[in-house]
């Protein structure tokens, strides 16, 4: 990672990793609040996914995070969303309206849980990154995280023509929760046929 950092030009502003770490601690709070039903999963997701590039402006992003308003969510079923983030911009809101509260977003969680104040600490932290490495490491992490968050079911989102679809059977064999696999294609609103599957999944969870 140090070599990579040097290759990319090194850390020009040594104070920035510390600032980013503070922001990420706010991200962890957002994540915790929605897991406890104090934030809508849609509001939380829009913040968490933005940690991929910190919205390009640390100060504005800090303001955005602080502008999120708390609310009381009546949680019906607790859902973990694994795989790549859905291409449908309203997915979390739709899921919530159908009684599925997303309490875990796998990839966005990777964006907020690794940080450090210098390159050595960052390198050590990113050794625990789960998403782009052998599946057994990722699965072990997921098993622990899903238990911690007391999820009722898992939605595995895959994107058309993306290799994650190939991993679906392995995930189903190793993640011991009811699982709905969704394959998305084009961006836009969540299509009706996906809404139907989400609602049927909630019905299945209510029966189990």
């Amino acid at each position: 990672m140090i070599k990579l950092s040097d290759f990319l030009g090194g850390i020009k502003s040594p104070e920035k990793p510390g600032e980013i770490r503070e922001l990420k601690s706010l991200g962890l709070q957002i994540d915790k609040k929605r897991t406890e039903g104090k934030l809508s999963s849609g509001d939380a997701f829009r913040i968490l996914i933005s940690f991929s590039d910190l919205a390009g402006d640390l100060d504005k992003f800090r303001e955005t995070i602080s502008s999120v308003t708390e609310t009381d969510i009546e949680i019906n079923k607790r859902i973990a969303l694994i795989g790549v983030p859905p291409i449908y911009h309203d997915f979390h809101d739709v899921a919530q309206s159908l009684g599925l509260h997303v309490v875990f977003d796998e990839l966005p969680y990777e964006f907020i849980r690794h940080s450090g104040t210098d390159i050595h600490e960052l390198a050590r932290e990113y050794c625990n990154y789960t998403f782009a490495r052998p599946l057994d490491f990722r699965i072990k992490f997921l098993q622990k995280e899903l238990k911690k968050r007391k999820v009722d079911g898992v939605v595995h989102y895959t994107q058309f023509a993306c290799h994650h679809m190939l991993e679906d059977d392995i995930m189903r064999s190793n993640i011991d929760y009811p699982m709905l696999t969704i394959q998305g294609d084009l961006p836009g609103n969540t299509p009706e046929q996906i809404k139907l599957r989400l609602e049927a999944f909630r019905e299945a969870l209510e029966r189990s």
């Binding site: 009706e192 139907l196 599957r197 609602e199 049927a200 019905e203 299945a204």
Partner: peptide, 20 residues
Amino acid sequence: GYFRNTVPHRASVTEITAAI
């Protein structure tokens, strides 16, 4: 069915659950 929530009903289920 698709219009399950727009027709009069006591309870509705998705056609997936009904088929099961």
